[in-house]
Design a protein around this nucleic acid. Sequence first.
DNA 1: GACCGCTGTGTACGATCGTACGCATGGATC
DNA 2: GATCCATGCGTACGATCGTACACAGCGGTC
Lengths: 185, 185
Amino acid sequence: MTAVTTRPRRHDPARRDRIIDACLDVVAERGVAGTTHRRVAAAADVPLGSMTYHFAGMDDLLREAFGRFAQQAAAQFERRMAEAPDRDAAVRAVVRLITLDVFATQRDLVLSHELYTLAARDPAFRTLTNDWMRRSRDALARHFDPATCRVLDAFIEGMTIHRALDTEPHDDVDVLAAVRRLTGA
Amino acid sequence: MTAVTTRPRRHDPARRDRIIDACLDVVAERGVAGTTHRRVAAAADVPLGSMTYHFAGMDDLLREAFGRFAQQAAAQFERRMAEAPDRDAAVRAVVRLITLDVFATQRDLVLSHELYTLAARDPAFRTLTNDWMRRSRDALARHFDPATCRVLDAFIEGMTIHRALDTEPHDDVDVLAAVRRLTGA
DNA sequence: GACCGCTGTGTACGATCGTACGCATGGATC
DNA sequence: GATCCATGCGTACGATCGTACACAGCGGTC
């Protein structure tokens, strides 16, 4: 019935993108466990039928969504590191990444954990995290040797997680000292 | 009908424990997303009704299960560190933790990630990770100063994750060097 | 040994899920 | 402007979920 509403539906290339973004929103809010086709469709304001039309299934959608997330996170990391003119500036950039930048928002923290959780079980998602890690290390490689890049990247990871989950106050000076020691600066 | 089978059902205190352990098994295998009352009941070999009898809901069960997991993981960490007689031995113990011990099994890796994911969203689970982190730091405190304990704990975390997710070969010598630098040894 | 209350279980119900499938719709072709 | 076909949507179905609730059966009490 009705059909009185405007129908500019034909050929909307942004629709698929909107679904992917909405999927990340739903995952951030309810977790992968609580992410359903219906909820994503509602968040993206598309009909339920669009879900199975654009994506083979939930796994397919999640792969695309987290691919986009990892891509954006890596790009942001690269941008931050590219701004550092020299080694000392790179050290301070790393400290800044840990103390406030990357997972400043609860959303990004949750999404990265959800991705790691998927990657821990599913090799398809592990390629996403591997690419992300490689790009991070490459971004660091402009200023540090390969072995240092590896441990430094892991250190950033661990510090970010701990600072996000820990309720106790943090001392940024300690982070700077640790990065200096780790990089031999 | 039937009722011919033996029925030693009365007062089985191990049943509740078995459900908790089975819950961890199911989570490790299918993720929190795929963990249902029915699957846990089947894994624990208890009737479905037992689920709601022993636990208020899935959240309640997960809290207990991950509480046990975090408790066991912390105890294992403490045990490993307690074996180190001096500072140098502690450094080598940390390296061993990173390179092979803690998350040697895929199961533990998956479970810890699932816990972090829950903690990132739910404060109730965050207290579990906080206790775990505090115990880890306290175990390290026998050999290192507080600031070092914090960054070292985070480094262990990050390295463990990266080594578990990364497909490239790892160099344990680099890890030793990094821990030495980080601890000022 | 008859009775009773509590512990634990079986089952059924309503909600919600993913997915298949028929059809509306609007641009392309002549 | 009539026809056709691919794109995209609405809906309905079967499966599976969490949970409520009636009741079975054993240990304690007299």
